[in-house]
Simulated assay, not measured.
Amino acid sequence: MSPWVLVALAGIMETGWAIGLKYSDGFTRPLPSVLTVLGALASFWMLSVAMKDLPVGTAYAVWVGIGAVGTAVAAVVLFGDPVNLMRVLGVVLILAGIAALKLA
């Protein structure tokens, strides 16, 4: 599998475990807690495999960016987080940074 596909999947998994942290309620709810930890482990594993072939700084930054954007969007949908111009611009800037790193 392409290392960039692994980074993308790892970033999606990062979104999942970040949202899982909210559902785990401070790790007091067993099922969401276990799923969150498993998601984090899967995400880290995929990122580590991708880093065999990709520059560490680029792979990590893209992974974090995908996770941050995914989490921000999911939080709006799932938890009603506010949407305003500054938040949207922040997400656009993160996406621009991911694109720049990928193309560099």
Rank of each mutant, 00 (worst) to 15 (best):
A96G: 14
A75C: 00
S43H: 10
V5R: 12
G70A: 05
A61S: 08
A100W: 09
Y60P: 03
I94L: 00
A18L: 03
G57T: 06
D81S: 15
W45E: 03
W17V: 03
L6D: 11
E14L: 05
T36D: 07
L47E: 05
R29Q: 13
S2A: 06
V34K: 15
V56I: 11
L6A: 14
T15A: 06
G65I: 00
L101H: 10
G16F: 12
T15Q: 07
N84P: 04
P3R: 00
A8E: 13
L6E: 01
P55R: 06
P82I: 13
A74H: 10
R87Y: 02
V5W: 02
V92R: 00
T36S: 07
G90D: 02
L6Y: 13
L93Q: 00
K52G: 06
D25K: 08
G16L: 12
A61L: 02
D53I: 02
R29H: 05
D53N: 03
S33A: 12
P30E: 09
I98E: 06
L21S: 15
L85T: 09
K52S: 02
A42G: 13
S24V: 01
L6M: 08
A99F: 14
V56F: 02
E14C: 04
N84Y: 10
G65D: 01
K52W: 02
G11L: 03
W4L: 12
A8F: 13
P55H: 12
G65Y: 07
M13C: 14
N84K: 07
A18Q: 11
T28A: 14
I94C: 00
L89Y: 00
L21P: 09
A59N: 01
P82Y: 05
A42M: 10
F79W: 05
W63S: 10
A104S: 15
V64C: 10
G67H: 09
W63Y: 03
M86L: 14
W17K: 05
V37K: 15
S24F: 00
S24T: 02
A75H: 05
G11M: 07
M51N: 06
A68Y: 04
D25L: 08
L9V: 11
W17H: 09
M86S: 12
A61H: 02
A96Q: 11
A74S: 12
K22A: 13
V83F: 05
V77E: 07
M86E: 07
M46N: 15
T71W: 04
A61C: 13
G67C: 10
L54M: 02
R29M: 09
L9R: 14
T71I: 14
A74Q: 11
G26V: 13
V83N: 14
G70D: 13
L35P: 04
G16T: 04
S33C: 15
L41G: 13
Y60K: 12
I98T: 03
V76C: 05
R29L: 04
D53T: 01
A72F: 08
K52C: 00
T36Y: 06
L47C: 01
K22T: 04
V7H: 05
T71V: 06
W45M: 08
V73L: 12
A100M: 15
P3F: 00
V5S: 04
K22I: 05
K22M: 02
G20W: 08
P82V: 13
G67W: 02
L38G: 04
A100E: 11
V34A: 11
G70T: 08
I98Q: 03
T15P: 03
P55T: 13
L89V: 02
